[in-house]
Computed example of a mutant assay.
Amino acid sequence: MLIKTRGIVLSYLKYRETSIIARVYTERLGVQTYVVNGVRKAKPPGRIALFQPFTLLELVAYVARGSSGLTRLSEFRCAEPFQTLPYDVHKSSVVLFLSEVLGRVVREEEQNEALFKFLHDSILDFDRQAAGSENFALGFMLQLAAYLGFGISSGSELTDQVIMAGHAATAKGVTGPATLRLHEFDGYFDELLRAPATSTIPNGRVRHELLNVLIRYYQLHVEQMGEIRSLEILSQVLN
């Protein structure tokens, strides 16, 4: 059985000599894993570029009957070419970070039209954004949390939960980052919830700390989320 759907590339792994295994968040089927044959061949060139993180695709995909697992793509093409994301080092670092976050927290193999629309529209807005993009990752993660079921309405709501979790870990003898300063960030999170592009966050060091707090907040709500390895790469760019 074949199905037509739009998709957002999350990641891929090399498979055999010329193929890949791609994870794609699809509009009609949620997260799917596809074997894509021949995209790493020298000719025709450039097809592997269609599977870079956050690429927006139009797909014709095979649907497995009765079980989940690897399926294949019958057809694929770029749905909306980017203007800046592949060519701007800062933006491509943000994309690498956010695609890793999405890959850890979005796992359902079912349709979610609202989430797909948010992801699709946010990616296009980021591609077209000329100013204020340094705060995009923070604003994106705050909005994404609402679609995942653990959104907040204020910065203090977020930091309170992280502080309580830190106290509980300390009581069990688990050491972790200090939580005493977290309420200093409440105002920044409030700004990001309202208008991330005009936030008064002063520098990359503070953005790095805010992202760390957000990741810790996500880890409280997403089972086995693990560490986000690309955060350090993004932090170097932010600084």
Results as ranks from 00 to 15, higher is better:
100 E>F: 01
100 E>P: 03
101 V>W: 00
101 V>A: 02
102 L>G: 02
104 R>Y: 09
104 R>A: 13
106 V>F: 02
107 R>V: 09
107 R>L: 14
107 R>G: 07
109 E>P: 08
110 E>W: 10
112 N>S: 12
114 A>Y: 12
115 L>R: 09
115 L>V: 08
116 F>W: 02
116 F>M: 03
116 F>P: 00
118 F>D: 02
118 F>S: 01
119 L>W: 07
119 L>D: 03
120 H>Q: 11
123 I>E: 03
125 D>M: 11
127 D>C: 07
128 R>Y: 11
130 A>T: 12
130 A>W: 08
130 A>D: 14
131 A>R: 14
133 S>R: 14
133 S>M: 15
133 S>T: 13
134 E>T: 11
136 F>E: 02
136 F>W: 10
137 A>L: 04
139 G>S: 06
140 F>L: 02
140 F>T: 03
141 M>H: 07
142 L>P: 02
142 L>Y: 01
142 L>H: 01
143 Q>G: 09
143 Q>P: 05
143 Q>Y: 11
145 A>C: 05
145 A>Q: 08
145 A>G: 06
146 A>L: 08
146 A>M: 07
146 A>E: 15
147 Y>C: 07
148 L>M: 10
148 L>G: 06
149 G>D: 00
150 F>V: 09
150 F>P: 12
150 F>A: 09
151 G>N: 02
151 G>R: 03
152 I>N: 06
152 I>L: 12
152 I>D: 05
153 S>L: 09
155 G>K: 03
155 G>M: 02
156 S>G: 15
157 E>V: 10
158 L>I: 08
160 D>F: 05
160 D>E: 12
162 V>P: 03
164 M>F: 13
166 G>K: 01
167 H>V: 13
168 A>W: 08
169 A>D: 14
169 A>W: 03
169 A>V: 04
169 A>S: 11
170 T>V: 13
171 A>D: 14
172 K>D: 13
172 K>W: 09
173 G>C: 04
173 G>P: 05
173 G>Y: 06
174 V>T: 13
175 T>I: 13
177 P>H: 10
178 A>H: 14
178 A>E: 15
179 T>R: 11
179 T>Q: 07
180 L>R: 15
181 R>V: 13
181 R>K: 14
181 R>G: 09
181 R>L: 15
184 E>D: 13
184 E>W: 14
185 F>T: 10
186 D>P: 08
186 D>F: 08
187 G>H: 08
188 Y>P: 00
189 F>N: 00
190 D>T: 06
190 D>P: 03
191 E>R: 01
193 L>R: 11
194 R>H: 14
194 R>T: 14
195 A>Y: 13
197 A>I: 09
197 A>N: 11
197 A>W: 10
198 T>Y: 09
198 T>N: 12
198 T>W: 10
198 T>A: 11
199 S>N: 06
202 P>D: 00
203 N>Q: 04
204 G>N: 06
205 R>F: 13
205 R>G: 12
209 E>I: 06
209 E>W: 05
209 E>L: 09
210 L>A: 04
210 L>G: 04
211 L>V: 02
211 L>G: 00
213 V>Q: 10
213 V>K: 10
217 Y>P: 01
219 Q>S: 11
219 Q>A: 14
220 L>K: 03
220 L>R: 07
220 L>C: 02
221 H>V: 08
222 V>R: 07
222 V>A: 01
223 E>Q: 09
223 E>M: 00
